[in-house]
Structures are given as C-alpha cells and as structure tokens.
C-alpha cells in the first residue's frame, strides 16, 4: 500500500516536473548598432487559442513590452494581424519602439510566418549590457482607441508630440484596451551589446 502511494506520488511529481520542464518558446534576441531586436517564436502563431483568433477575421494584437530591469525603462512594440475573409489575405502591421511602422498584405500563411520571423526592434541603448524582461500579450481585437488617447496625451502637456522619443504610446495603448488577453508570455534575458 505504502509502495503504491509512494509510486503514485512519484508519478505525480514526474508529471508535475515534466510539465514544468516544458518551457515556453523563447524569442531570439539580436543587437545591431545599439538596437535590440527580437525574433518572436513562430510557435506563438501555432498555439491553438492564437490560431483560433487569427482565423476569426478580427484583428489579433501582439503587444511586446520590454522592461530594462536596472533602469526601470520601458519600451515596446505592437504587431497586428487580421485575416481578410473576402480578399483572403493577411493584413499585418508592426509598430516598433521608435514609431517605425511596417504594413503588409500577405497572401499566404507561409508569407505570414516569414514576416513574423523578421526581428521586432524593441529598444535602443548605448549600455554594454542590458537585462530585459520581455512580456508578450496576445489580445483579441485591435487597439483602436489610440487616436483619442494620443490626442488627449498631446493636449495634456505635449508629452506625445516630440518626434523620435519612442513609440511607447502606440505600443502601450494596447494595454489599456479592455479585451481579455488570449495568452501571454514572459521572458527574461541578459544581452551583451559590446
């Protein structure tokens, strides 16, 4: 009886550890001229709940927030993907940390996956090392409230008017929308830039 109980506990521990050991997919980080980019894992797109949302005909928003742990500095990027049911194309947009925007109409899932593998630029730094906490939230619907928000922020003291200050508004507005995240990921990484 005791042996059976011990075996059951051992089995449970094994299951628990094996599920713990199942690490979430990790992005690949790269550094180019002081700019940190991340290639998000393609397996994110394959996750069942994400796949379901991607095929819904509605926008799926991927919000990437990068926190520099020593500096409490936050930057981010946003990716939006929508499948147009009538044109049968993927309409995608990527807004990076500095506001650089890339829009595409992709004609196949393979093209989407290829575009997805393009590194997302998250921050620029002149530090020799950065410790980052990167959060990816997958949200249903688009972050469409940003225009109102930006106007208000602009009026409320000009913080939103300076060019080149980083597209944190665009990146972060997504966090204010009330849509429930479909899933989210968190990665911690330390990068040597020199």
């Amino acid at each position: 009886m005791v042996i059976r109980a011990a075996a059951a506990i051992a089995l449970l521990l094994l299951v628990a550890f094996s599920s713990d050991a199942q690490q979430p997919p990790r992005p690949v980080f790269n550094v180019q001229a002081g700019v940190v980019g991340a290639t998000l894992p393609a397996s994110v797109l394959q996750q069942q709940s994400v796949k379901k949302q991607l095929s819904s005909g509605l926008t799926t928003t991927f919000l990437v927030i990068a926190r520099q742990r020593e500096l409490s500095r936050v930057t981010g990027a946003r990716i939006e993907v929508r499948y147009d049911l009538w044109d049968e194309v993927w309409i995608v947009r990527r807004v990076e940390f500095d506001g650089k925007t890339d829009r595409q109409r992709l004609t196949s899932a393979e093209a989407l996956e290829k575009w997805w593998r393009t590194p997302v630029r998250l921050l620029a730094t002149d530090a020799a090392r950065v410790a980052l906490q990167v959060d990816l939230s997958v949200l249903p619907f688009s972050a469409a409230e940003e225009e109102d928000a930006r106007q208000w922020i602009t009026k409320s003291g000009g913080v939103g008017t300076a060019a080149g200050g980083g597209g944190i508004v665009d990146a972060l507005i997504g966090t204010t929308i009330s849509a429930k995240p479909i899933t989210s990921y968190r990665w911690n990484v330390e990068l040597a830039l020199r």
Partner: peptide, 14 residues
C-alpha cells in the same frame, strides 16, 4: 513608466 512618448501615425488596419 517614465517613458518618452511620441505621436505616431498608426491608423488601425481594421
């Protein structure tokens, strides 16, 4: 967040 902000052209794709 004490982050710099910028106005961006970011019309929603939807």
């Amino acid at each position: 967040l004490a982050a710099p902000l910028a106005a961006q052209d970011a019309a929603a794709p939807s």
